[in-house]
């Protein structure tokens, strides 16, 4: 049985159309003139317990809106949603006990309090048993290296420190499900890696179900086996990261480094894309040629110093889907 299940989930925002000017402002008060914006347009998805799914889509696609409906703070316009057997917007408080949330763009910590006081407050709010609290806090403090700023007021924390605090805050009560909405936004490379490591660990060790929204596809490559792609409120792809890579990654690249410069190197079955001195980059059709045979052929022809086989790049694939839209490429691959 899936732990999260939505069916034809829709959210339409209705806002009063504003009129310019002072008189306009007055008329706005009484106006019945609405502007409608469909943010989520029939999303059906289901997650099994313990899954870690990347929820990906361009700006304004409806990701945050979906997540808000899963937390119960937004009521869907239509469709159904079920999270661990609870309809979130009907039983917001019960649902809140099952979930943990990190919104990268806003903090749930108490601005004026030292970090650890925020944690204490959360312990009281969720009624976390003292032993669980101590164990979790100790673990998070060491994993996220928070000792240095545990007593610092949240307002004085750097973005990266605050984000680590937010992760701990979201997980103290051992939630079954965690929503992460852009949790690596604005972090440096080291901090990003630390957070990814942490997410992977929570998912693996605690079996926490995680929905991860991000614009950094390295997060997805590192963490997710499955992605759900959403565009203009509609799901356009739901499946393995590997599959989309295979579908879109028909062409691969082989980069050769020679011991001495080679003028226009040739490789049967592969097409030279660029070459400069000791370096050459070939493109080949994965369905027609085998990489190992190409490499052997190359080593017979030239003195090689190094060979790199470039993996299909998720970012390039996703970029292409955003621009061109998604269509299954399985047929193309077969032909």
């Amino acid at each position: 049985m899936p732990i999260i299940q939505t069916r034809d989930l829709r959210k339409v925002f209705r806002s009063v159309r504003r009129r310019p000017g002072a008189l306009g402002a007055l008329r706005t008060l009484f106006s019945r003139d609405y502007e409608e914006r469909v943010a989520v347009d029939g999303v059906t998805m289901s997650l099994e317990a313990g899954e870690l799914v990347g929820y990906i889509g361009p700006n304004g696609a409806g990701k945050s809106t979906t997540i808000k409906m899963l937390t119960g703070i937004l009521v869907p316009t239509s469709g159904s949603v079920d999270v661990a057997g609870i309809v979130p917007y009907e039983h917001r408080k019960d649902n809140a006990r099952n979930i943990g949330v990190v919104f990268g763009q806003r903090s749930q910590l108490y601005w004026d309090l030292p970090l650890v006081e925020s944690f204490e407050l959360l312990r009281a709010i969720y009624g976390i048993p003292q032993s669980t609290y101590k164990r979790n806090l100790a673990e998070f403090v060491s994993l996220l290296q928070m000792d240095d700023f545990l007593r610092t007021p949240v307002r004085q924390l750097s973005l990266g420190q605050r984000m680590r605090g937010d992760f701990a805050a979201a997980l103290l009560h051992d939630p079954k499900i965690v929503y992460l909405d852009e949790p690596t936004i604005g972090l440096d490379v080291v901090a990003k890696e630390a957070i990814r490591e942490f997410i992977a660990r929570i998912n693996a060790e605690r079996g926490t179900t995680i929905i991860l929204t991000t614009h950094d596809l390295a997060d997805v490559e590192r963490l997710c086996r499955r992605i759900v792609l959403i565009d203009r409120g509609t799901i356009i792809y739901d499946g393995d990261v590997e599959r989309i890579k295979n579908e879109y990654g028909r062409f691969r690249h082989l980069v050769l480094r020679f011991e001495e410069p080679v003028e226009r190197p040739q490789l049967p079955g592969a097409e030279l894309e660029e070459s400069a001195g000791v370096r050459a980059r070939f493109r080949f059709d994965r369905n027609r040629e085998r990489a190992d045979l190409l490499i052997r052929e190359a080593s017979e022809r030239y003195k090689l110093e190094d060979v790199t086989l470039e993996e299909p790049d998720l970012e390039a694939i996703i970029r292409r889907i955003y621009v061109e839209g998604y269509e299954s490429r399985t047929e193309e691959t077969v032909s």
């Binding site: 808000k68 937390t71 703070i73 809140a96 949330v101 919104f103 806003r106 749930q108």
Partner: peptide, 13 residues
Amino acid sequence: EGTIATDLMKPIS
């Protein structure tokens, strides 16, 4: 400011 979201996501009245 939209920060009411944070309170609504907690098991509190």
